[in-house]
Simulated assay, not measured.
Amino acid sequence: MRGLVQVAQHADDLDRATAFYRDVLGLRHLATYRPPGLAFFDLDGVRLLIEKGAPSAVLYLASDDLDADVARLRAHDVVIVEEPHLIFTDDGTFGTPGKEIRMAAFRDSEGNLLCLMT
């Protein structure tokens, strides 16, 4: 095995979800196929597939400025489920020892939970 190629996310309304992931999150839209009702986005080299038949997945997205990203989401009336907060201080297991790992959680247009992490 060589790594993750694609992840799928549930959407009841493909157009609404496409607008959310493209316009609110700023992901690059790769393609939409109708039928069968699939939309693809680029997640830093991993494809994100949006489709009605997919189960809901929790996506953890990288953020360079968590507070600014949460403010931008709020400006788009996105529901923030968890405010930015400290998760842990890295002991070196995941990167730089001493780096504070922060997270915030929100809901997409389809009610799926997503998280932003620094």
Rank of each mutant, 00 (worst) to 15 (best):
M1I: 13
R2C: 00
R2Q: 14
G3S: 06
L4N: 03
V5E: 12
V5H: 11
Q6W: 01
V7G: 04
A8H: 06
A8Q: 14
D12Y: 00
D13A: 11
D13H: 10
D13M: 08
L14V: 10
L14Q: 11
A19E: 14
A19I: 03
Y21T: 03
Y21V: 02
R22P: 06
D23T: 09
V24Q: 09
L25G: 02
G26Q: 07
H29A: 03
H29R: 06
L30V: 11
L30S: 00
A31Y: 11
A31D: 14
T32Y: 06
T32E: 15
R34C: 07
R34W: 02
R34V: 14
P35H: 04
P36K: 01
G37K: 00
G37Q: 07
L38D: 00
A39Y: 01
F41S: 02
F41W: 06
D42Q: 09
L43T: 13
D44M: 08
V46F: 03
R47V: 15
R47S: 13
L48D: 02
L49A: 10
L49H: 04
I50D: 01
K52F: 02
K52M: 00
G53Q: 07
G53T: 10
A54V: 05
P55H: 09
P55D: 02
S56A: 15
V58A: 13
L59C: 07
L61N: 00
L61D: 03
S63E: 04
S63K: 06
D64P: 08
L66T: 12
D67R: 10
A68T: 15
D69L: 11
V70F: 10
V70R: 11
V70L: 12
V70P: 11
R72P: 01
R72K: 14
A75G: 10
V78R: 05
V78E: 06
V78P: 01
V78C: 06
V79T: 15
V81I: 15
E82C: 07
E83M: 03
P84N: 07
L86K: 01
L86R: 10
L86V: 09
D90M: 06
G92S: 02
F94S: 10
G95H: 05
T96H: 15
P97Q: 02
G98I: 05
K99V: 10
I101V: 15
R102P: 07
A105Y: 05
F106N: 15
R107S: 12
D108P: 08
D108A: 14
G111M: 10
G111H: 11
G111L: 11
N112I: 12
N112T: 09
L113C: 05
L114M: 09
L114F: 10
C115Y: 13
C115Q: 14
L116E: 04
M117G: 08
M117N: 10
T118L: 02
